[in-house]
Amino acid sequence: MSKKNIEITVRCLLFLCSIISLMILVGIGYFLFKNGFSAFIENGLGNFIFGKTWNISKNVYGVYPLILGSLFVTTGSIIVSAPIGISVAIFMTDIATSDIKKIIGPCIELMAGIPSIVFGLVGMIFLVPLIRENFSPPGYSLIAAIIVLIVMTMPTIITLSEDSLRSVPRQYKEASYALGATKWQTVWNVTLPAAKSGIIGAVILGMGRAIGEAMAVYMVIGNAFKIPNSLFDPSRTLTSNIVGQIEEAALNSQHMHALFACGIILLIFVFLFNGISFKMRKVV
């Protein structure tokens, strides 16, 4: 083969690779909608989204409590993990010496690498009994899921906020210090405002992670199909609903369609969060 032909062949092959990569996204969208859309039709879009019954034997599916459950755990966890995560990021960029960074950095990396199932396990064995005995039974509850998600979203928020704080030009900080500002004044008045949109982006991406987390939430939330009255009530999210039933639902049944429709709603939320996050962090 001549050099020219090799060149053309290679180019075609590589292009094919990227086409296949692209097809995966298209494929996911297609199969999700093909299976999930029927649920909107079978139940009626309004009844499906605002319905409060999930009855497999009668084939009636409404996901209102699931949407609320997902939104509750997401907001609940982010309210706590955002300020904590941002604080740690500030600590890492502006306070920690390089020795301390060498210890804490790998810790946070490890935290990001812990399988979600392990968070679920520790939550289930440690946290759930703790809540049951000290606060209110059954322990499997909204608050348990929120606490687990606080820990799980932390690495995302820390790492991305840190990136954005680090990308603030050094000149800004120098200008502030040279005018007699303390470290904290510089962080508060210069670094944080300059990194604001990146940090908001990090937090919103954290929300995307939280709403999409399935296994750990499933293991601690109790999976009661109802709108929780308090933080100590068991509840169910879009994701934990899928985890609980994906194995038993028959292919092409209305039940399976309803699970896929949960996936569609979940995906809409995730894309919404990630889209905003990309915009804020200027990724796209």
Binding site: Y172, A175, A178, L179, V190, P193, A194
Partner: peptide, 16 residues
């Protein structure tokens, strides 16, 4: 630093 001010090589106004 309040008594000894500094002007830098690259003009470095804050983003304000």
């Amino acid at each position: 630093r309040k008594k000894i001010g500094m002007v830098f090589q690259q003009p470095n106004p804050l983003p304000k």
